[in-house]
Design a protein around this nucleic acid. Structure first.
Length: 353
DNA sequence: AATGCGGGGAC
DNA sequence: GTCCCAGCATT
């Protein structure tokens, strides 16, 4: 279909049919736009909404975020996933607070240089906050354009991304880039949905290649498959005078910057007897100590399946044990950010250590 | 170009 | 179970 007609139909749909409401919509404050965009990377609006509200209440300005204790920020991010987003959020807040008086740069190129901000987020901030003509290209845009323009090239390849990117930039309404960008994402989220799109109500019904050729469900084409690795985590929770050892996960691995208890990881499922024997050999469990072994807590990640078991026991003496860990009062554990698997265990009745 | 990084919701 | 979500950094 003709390119400027696409933008016309889209804007028309946005002004007459789009009922989607979100707290950051129409906002011009770059800080709020930035925060919402980081939270929403690979994250559904419904899931991110509460986090956005909590962040704005706790850190109303970029300076508030910049001077906050890192642990407190991670605690607020706890459960949202992709924790490098949080790390980069703090980093960029501090850079802008200390070197730019808390002001965001006002060009796409300068916004793109900031940590945690890629092409999508830079285009979103540039268009929403500064009315600059940069097209957002996210999962919605890939889907909407692939269907309406009948793009059969796989979108998760370099060639496919190039086609979509060039098309998106041509289609952008450069007079109303912010409204256009918001509209195409709202349209993808509410009408041209991944499953069961609302084609009968779609303003592009008579122009959509996928609809006319009855291949809506086949587009966009994606090739890559993810393989899932299973990992077995055995966490040890020794209690000494109502305190437990914890440490921050610092390796380049899942849950970086979240906290954990002493851990033995296995590639294969291991019996509780064998794992207790291994911990005893490491000196983590004094001989003859009675332990309580939890059921298996399974957590699915995109590329990993985590099967976690928690082994709790009491220590009469802690001298020489867990010296690389911090001993934290059980009642203070809820001030630390933990992976979902661990908070689930801690929040279960009877596990409140 | 490929891989790793969370957690949840829809089907 | 599978797919996908307002992606990005790293290698």
């Amino acid at each position: 279909m003709i390119h400027n007609l696409f933008s016309h139909y889209l804007i028309d749909w946005n002004r007459n049919k789009n009922n989607r409401k979100m707290p950051w919509k129409g906002v011009k404050d770059p800080y709020k736009i930035w925060l919402s965009e980081i939270i929403l990377q690979q994250t559904r609006v419904d899931q991110g909404l509460k986090y956005y509200e909590n962040f704005i209440i706790t850190f109303p300005t970029i300076h508030d975020l910049a001077k906050a204790d890192e642990k407190k920020v991670f605690k607020l991010w706890e459960g949202l996933g992709y924790y490098s987003r949080c790390k980069n959020l703090i980093h960029t807040a501090r850079v802008l607070s200390s070197t730019q008086n808390g002001q965001f740069p006002a060009t796409y190129e300068d916004i793109l240089k900031l940590k945690g901000i890629g092409p999508y987020t830079a285009a979103a901030i540039a268009s929403f906050a500064f009315d600059l003509p940069h097209a957002v290209i996210d999962g919605n845009v890939f889907r909407v354009l692939a269907r309406i323009f009948g793009i059969r090239e796989p979108v998760d390849t370099t060639a496919g991304k190039k086609i979509i990117t060039e098309l998106a930039e041509k289609l952008l309404d450069k007079e109303h880039p912010g409204e256009y960008n918001q509209a195409i994402m709202d349209f993808g989220a509410t009408v041209c949905k991944p499953a069961n799109p609302d084609c009968e109500q779609c303003p592009f019904k008579s122009n959509c290649v996928a609809y006319k050729e009855d291949i809506v469900a086949l587009l966009p084409v994606k090739i890559k498959r993810t393989t899932v690795r299973t990992r077995y985590f055995y966490f040890f929770l020794p209690q000494y005078r109502n305190a437990l050892p914890v440490r921050e996960r610092l390796d380049k691995d899942i849950w970086q910057h979240l906290y954990e208890f002493p851990l033995i990881e296995k590639e294969e499922e291991t019996s509780s007897g064998a794992i207790v024997a291994a911990a005893t050999k490491k000196g983590w469990i004094p001989k003859g100590t009675a332990v309580t072994v939890s059921p298996v807590y399974a957590q699915k990640l995109s590329h990993q399946l985590i099967k976690a078991v928690f082994i709790s026991y009491r220590l009469a003496e802690k001298s020489g044990l867990f010296e690389n860990y911090s001993w934290v009062k059980a009642a203070a554990l809820n001030t630390l950010p933990f992976p979902k698997t661990i908070t689930q265990y801690l929040n279960k009745a009877g596990n409140d250590h």
